[in-house]
Simulated scan of single mutants.
Amino acid sequence: MGTWTVEELDRIGEAEELRISSLRRDGSFSKPIIIWVVRVGDDLYVRSAYGPDNPWYVNARRRGHGRVSAGGVEREVDFADASAADPRAIDAAYHAKYDPISSPRIVATVVGENVHPLTLRLIPREA
């Protein structure tokens, strides 16, 4: 398992949007989609805003491997279970980062008990 550098954490954590793609069966990566990402400590988290059937989320869970790009950083990652993380800390990170730039209705899609189980931790793969 790889680790994020401080610079990568800062750049991705400060980026407003993250491009995320998952590994396909043929070994290629899917077309990237744009989602939100938050940093809590030395970890980066993403959530499925529109439920467990959101295609990017289904594929990320199924394949477990993908690629992310934000803040000038591009890395291959593993999509890891985040159930050991504090969901309230992740909610707070989403509020701190996105409340000032987005509507409460949109931020509400990535915070709260309904989306806690839909959280993935991004773990960088060794370069």
Rank of each mutant, 00 (worst) to 15 (best):
Y50N: 12
S48F: 00
R62N: 13
L18G: 01
A108Q: 03
A84Q: 11
E14A: 12
P32L: 05
Y50L: 12
H116N: 09
L23D: 04
R47M: 11
G112L: 06
P100T: 13
D99I: 01
E16G: 09
D86S: 11
R75A: 01
R19F: 10
N114Q: 12
A84C: 03
A70T: 01
I20H: 02
G41T: 08
L120W: 05
A49N: 08
D43T: 04
A108K: 13
I20P: 01
I35W: 08
R24S: 03
E16L: 10
A96T: 12
K97C: 05
Y94C: 10
K97P: 07
V46K: 06
A127I: 06
I101P: 13
A15N: 01
L9A: 03
R25E: 07
N114R: 15
N114K: 15
N54F: 03
L120I: 13
D43W: 03
E126L: 01
S102R: 14
E113L: 10
G66D: 03
R47T: 10
G66P: 01
V77T: 03
G27D: 08
D99E: 15
W4P: 01
L122N: 04
Y57P: 09
V73D: 10
P87A: 11
S103W: 07
N59A: 10
F79I: 02
I34V: 15
D53Y: 09
T5R: 09
G66F: 02
D91G: 06
T119V: 00
